[in-house]
Design a protein around this nucleic acid. Structure first.
Length: 552
RNA sequence: GCCCUCGUAGCUCAGCGGAUAGAGCAGAAGACUUCUAAUCUUUUGGCCGCAGGUUCGAUUCCUGCCGAGGGCGCCA
């Protein structure tokens, strides 16, 4: 039996108990959270619903729990339901009822774990959004991994998700970028505050190769062409780095398009300002134009157009936000580094000024930065560590996994020595090895004549089997929770748990009989459990963008 | 000064308001003529930064303090 089905049955019993205690205003539905208990002595599933609901019935939690446990104990498929502690109910399923799940998993295949929890939501997830003036570095790496995993998890929960990269290709830094490349081409000293690192020289050589006529042009033309060609090359490099890292974006949004005039002679920024003005949140002071973001909790109002008539970066932010709304995204998720946390209030205020709900339509996930022990700094990019170097050093799987297994707000320092190890202390190998092992077991089993066509879940009576099965049953709940909380790391932690339970089971129960022992129905049945475990590990790794090798 | 995040075992870190706070590593002791030991079994190790508050119940929520990191612009 699947936990969702059991939870629904229990919810009915809770309502019945409540009404038998004379509770008038029964809740429309009771959320029975079935949890996997920490201790195996506590059965397959536990619920604290009695503790939460007893107050409404006006009876002591333990009494309520006792009556409810009796009801649950008589449900089909339930072997035992006990009251423990202050009013927990521990439930043990009959082996056959629990094991039916194995067939369900094999039937659903790669769809097992998907849900409709977020069906109907249109979500825009923006992340990385690096300036196209240099290679991606370690500061972008965590968001690339985490954002991509979040997108996968949200989709798995049924949301309609678009991943988006905001290209900061407008503003003074692009000219500085062009000047830096040009200086390198002409053999001049780099401009003050210009871009450093040998990647500039690389770009300069490539720009010159594509545009050899450039040297004869006027200075202004030279800068413009160095800038535009360099931009095109650098953006292509960034896309390649992300593709190599397994990260795909649905939309590359150019900031320039917000500034450019449309046929009407106004830009998106112009019209956005008018829309904010129409909402009544714009005022003028000291010759500048301001948005009254303090109406929505910002600590100060923000200038949107300077006294000299030039728009601020905030103006582009506003136009970009409205663009997302206009493109049909009900929910906008931003992934930002801790160094951008000062933007939370003003971005939320922006949503409010645009007439939306800052609590609902915009979410900003702030993450702590990553450090790497003993990482070599990149000569190519100056004083930073490049994503490409990290990927080549540690591999896509180890890098993605180790970045995705921690919550975003947890400060993180990676240890390359561990990440390149092939052993238990490297979680990605631990999980991948478990997956490879399920394939090895299946290969051996099939070679010895063990097959999945005989399946009798009531034979799965080993304690390690019960634990493995209930952990497999937990997968859909974990994915849904990861999506709801925007915390993909839960998937990684879950996989480590499944891998551990699988290795333990492998050690205690054989799929292929040893030596000349005969093949029995239990062996056939265990092959299905083995295969179902492989399926769950594969599905989970796919959510993290990590490969699931069949052999290691 | 104001704002944000973090503080859990020796280390790296989990922990949707619930049970005796967990995992891996490190330390100690075991299991390989193996369905791949890249694994498993047993075990040592905690004033959950400190002090209050809310709650039947707080590592979790709130307030203050201490400590670490980051941020404050008519820059982008």
């Amino acid at each position: 039996m699947e936990p969702q089905a059991l939870a629904a049955l229990i919810a009915e019993r809770v309502l019945a108990q409540l009404s038998s205690h004379g509770v008038e205003d029964l809740p429309a539905e009771v959320d029975v959270a079935l949890e996997r208990p920490r201790s195996a002595d506590h059965g397959d599933w536990a619920t604290s619903v009695a503790l939460k609901v007893a107050k409404h019935a006006g009876v002591p939690p333990r009494d309520f729990a006792a009556a409810l446990a009796t009801d649950i104990g008589s449900l089909p498929g339930v072997a035992v339901a006990d009251v423990a502690g202050p009013g927990f109910i521990n439930i043990t399923l009959e082996a056959g009822a629990a094991g039916e799940l194995v067939a369900t998993i094999l039937e659903l295949g790669e769809h097992y774990g998907q849900s409709t929890a977020l069906a109907g939501e249109t979500i825009n997830v923006e992340f990385v959004s690096a300036n196209p003036t240099g290679p991606l570095h370690i500061g972008h790496t965590r968001w690339a991994a985490l954002g991509d995993c979040l997108v996968r998890v949200l989709r798995s929960a049924g949301a309609d998700v678009t991943s988006e990269f905001y290209v900061n290709d407008a503003g003074a830094q692009m000219d500085t970028f062009g000047e830096s490349i040009l200086a390198s081409i002409l053999g001049e000293a780099p401009p003050e505050g210009g871009y450093q690192g040998s990647y500039i020289a690389d770009l300069a050589a490539r720009v010159l190769e594509q545009d050899p006529e450039l040297v004869g042009e006027s200075r202004a033309e030279q800068i413009a062409r160095a800038r535009d060609t360099g931009y095109r090359l650098q953006l292509a490099d960034i896309k390649q780095s992300l593709t190599d890292f397994g990260v795909e974006f649905g939309v590359w949004f150019s900031e320039r398009t917000l500034h450019e005039n449309e046929a009407t002679g106004t830009s998106l920024i112009d019209s956005s300002l008018e829309r904010l003005r129409a909402g009544g949140h714009v005022f003028e002071e000291d010759d500048a134009v301001w948005v009254r973001t303090t109406d929505f909790g910002d600590d100060k109002d923000r200038v949107i157009r300077r006294a000299n008539g030039v728009y601020t970066y905030f103006a582009a932010d506003a136009a970009y936000y409205l663009s997302k709304t206009d493109r049909g995204f009900e929910k906008k998720i931003y992934l930002l580094g801790a160094d951008h946390h000062g933007y939370i209030h003003r971005l939320k205020a922006l949503a409010g000024a645009a007439g939306e709900d800052p609590e609902k339509n915009i979410e900003i996930l702030i993450g702590q930065l990553v450090s790497i022990n003993g990482a070599k700094l990149s000569k190519r990019a100056g004083n930073i560590i490049e994503l490409d170097d990290l990927r080549e050093w540690l591999g896509v799987d180890a890098l993605r996994y180790s970045l995705a297994r921690y919550p975003a707000d947890s400060p993180l320092s990676l240890d390359p020595e561990i990440l390149t190890k092939r052993s238990n202390d490297n979680p990605v190998f631990y999980v991948q090895y478990a997956h490879a092992r399920t394939h090895q077991v299946a290969r051996n089993a099939e070679a010895s004549g063990v097959a999945t066509d005989t399946f009798d879940p009531s034979l799965l009576t080993e304690p390690t089997e019960a634990a493995l099965i209930s952990s497999l049953a937990d997968f859909p709940r974990v994915v849904t929770q990861a999506a709801n909380l925007r915390e993909p790391h839960r998937v990684a932690r879950y996989l480590e748990d499944v891998a551990a339970l699988f290795h333990r089971w492998y050690d205690h129960a054989r799929v292929t009989p040893q030596g000349d022992d005969p093949i029995e129905p239990v062996h056939h049945t265990r092959l299905s459990l083995n295969n179902a475990t492989g399926q769950v590990l594969r599905n989970g790794l796919a959510l993290l963008g990590v490969s699931a090798p069949e052999r290691m």
